[in-house]
Computed example of a mutant assay.
Amino acid sequence: MAGHYLSKKAFIEGTFAKLGQVLPNGAQLHTENVIVEGDQAVVELHSLATARNGMRFDNRYCWVVYFQDGLIVRVRAYLDSTMVARLFEENPIA
């Protein structure tokens, strides 16, 4: 799921659409903290989800968001990529 996405549509297709195939109720993201300064924001989130096979997918995220003229122009996302890999190993997409 890592990569450079050039549109919101491409990001959703490359991330949340794939997660939706293995997490019946979605990633269920919950915001913990938001820090905004100038044209940047740091957003801490966590997910409380269960995969098709019953695996708990309780991941933590940190998104660094950049804005220009009120629009998001770039996001850097940090998360437990080992947990994501395990999720897809145990719940392969057909």
Rank of each mutant, 00 (worst) to 15 (best):
G20F: 04
E37K: 11
K18I: 03
N53T: 11
R52E: 13
G20E: 01
I12F: 04
L19R: 00
L29Q: 05
R56P: 14
R52M: 14
V36T: 13
L45V: 08
K9R: 12
N59E: 10
V22H: 09
F11M: 06
L23W: 00
W63I: 08
Q21P: 05
V43Q: 10
Q28Y: 05
Y66E: 10
L23S: 03
N53V: 08
M55I: 10
V43L: 11
N25R: 11
C62G: 02
L48T: 13
D58T: 14
R60S: 06
H30F: 12
V64H: 05
L29P: 15
H30I: 13
V43S: 06
E32F: 11
P24N: 13
L23I: 14
T50R: 14
Q40G: 01
I12C: 01
I12H: 00
T15M: 00
C62Y: 01
T15G: 04
N53C: 13
V42G: 08
Q28M: 12
N59R: 09
K18R: 03
N53D: 15
L19D: 06
V34Y: 04
G14C: 02
L29N: 13
Y66I: 04
E13V: 04
A17G: 02
E32Q: 14
V22Q: 05
S47L: 10
A51M: 04
H30Q: 11
G20R: 03
G38P: 12
S47R: 01
Y61M: 07
A49N: 05
Y61C: 00
A41I: 07
G20H: 02
